[in-house]
């Protein structure tokens, strides 16, 4: 049954952290053009139910694989490594320090209502992420899954900081 397939199988792409995004886009659109409920408006209810399930599955697979951190977490889950609840590994002290510094900078910029500063912090995080994702790709390539888990966990923190910056910008926007 279709439900038992993993996200890579759903879209017919190889199981790997390295994904060609244009091929992923094409596979997703190709699949949706076969299963989307818009194709089954005049079909029987049974067919419409199946179409909704398959289109839902296609969306979930695509959204997971398109986003590099979600893709990493999913790949690790396939190996029974749960990134979010992995408590056995302690965070690298250097990363913890760096993380604290970012957080303080964001809080200061929010308190001072300094939009420009928030935006430059945002750009800084984006650049940092780019470096980290290419490192993560190497870790997956060499089969170093525990280090990959640690790297993914750090990226979770960074994405959380990114959201905090977004919230800060939004606050200033609304006021």
């Amino acid at each position: 049954m279709a439900q038992a397939k993993n996200h890579f199988e759903v879209l017919g792409v190889p199981v790997s952290f390295t994904v060609a995004l244009d091929a992923l886009d094409r596979a997703y659109r190709n699949l949706q053009s076969k299963v989307h409920p818009d194709r089954f408006v005049n079909a029987t209810e049974a067919e419409r139910r199946v179409a909704m399930q398959l289109a839902t599955g296609a969306n979930e697979a695509y959204q997971t694989l398109k986003h590099p951190l979600k893709r990493a977490i999913y790949l690790l889950e396939m190996r029974d490594i749960d990134v979010r609840s992995e408590t056995s590994i302690t965070m690298e002290p250097a990363f913890l320090m760096q993380q604290l510094e970012w957080r303080e900078n964001i809080e200061d910029a929010r308190a001072a209502r300094n939009l420009g500063r928030l935006e430059s912090l945002h750009d800084e995080l984006i650049a940092e992420k780019r470096v980290r994702f290419s490192h993560l790709e190497k870790l997956f390539g060499s089969g170093a899954f525990q280090p990959a888990c640690e790297a993914a966990r750090q990226l979770l923190f960074i994405e959380k900081l990114e959201r905090e910056i977004g919230d800060g910008i939004e606050e200033m926007d609304v006021a």
Partner: peptide, 21 residues
Amino acid sequence: LNRLTEPFAARRMDRSVQQAL
């Protein structure tokens, strides 16, 4: 009839998806 044909619909659609992929 919808209940009875749902697995049938799923198999047909799955095959069309496989062909597409």
